[in-house]
């Protein structure tokens, strides 16, 4: 299957008065972090306009899975806002509570083809959950809009 045709990450948006949050799942911790990154990108841009052309290396450190999630998503946000590289697809190669490495695939922002949705200002610790549950992994994240 052409990777570009893969549906966006599995997630759902959650209600928050001022900002936006999402819940996401994964069979493994790696898949959870991949899906969370996909959810963040889908909040910020019309993700179907982005093609997974170029690899973009990603890595983050944390004190635990929660801070790892915030730092990982902050890296994805940095790719978008500073490097102007929206990412369509993610692959985590290694994840422990202290460190995550992987990469995203995306392309340089092209105003003719890409459409922005919202500028995400930051990834918050508010109501943050990252946990292993029976049968998989679950995360809840609130973003500052």
């Amino acid at each position: 299957m052409n990777e570009d045709l893969k549906p966006p990450a599995m997630f759902e948006l959650i209600e928050h008065t001022a900002d936006i949050g999402f819940r996401t799942w994964g069979k493994t911790a790696a898949e959870l972090f991949e899906n969370a990154a996909g959810a963040l990108m889908a909040v910020a841009v019309e993700i179907e306009t982005v093609e997974a052309r170029e690899p973009y290396p990603l890595a983050a450190e944390g004190l635990d899975y929660e801070s790892l999630m915030v730092n990982w998503l902050s890296e994805v946000l940095y790719a978008l806002d500073a490097k102007r590289t929206p990412l369509r697809r993610f692959e985590v190669s290694e994840v422990t509570p202290a460190r995550i490495t992987g990469q995203g695939w995306g392309e340089r922002w092209n105003p003719a083809r890409h459409r922005a949705k919202l500028i995400v200002k930051g990834v918050t610790y508010h109501q943050l959950q990252v946990e292993e549950r029976a049968g998989g992994w679950y995360a809840q994240v609130v973003l500052d809009i």
């Binding site: 004190l63 929660e66 915030v70 902050s74 940095y78 200002k121 930051g122 610790y125 943050l128 500052d144």
Partner: peptide
């Protein structure tokens, strides 16, 4: 946005050093 992100990332460890515990981690 990045300044806030950078300092929040540092504060988790710093709060342990200063023995501060709070009901919401975002209050760091």
């Amino acid at each position: 946005h990045q300044v806030c992100t950078d300092y929040l990332a540092q504060m988790g460890a710093a709060m342990k050093r200063y023995n501060i515990t709070l009901p919401d981690r975002q209050l760091a």
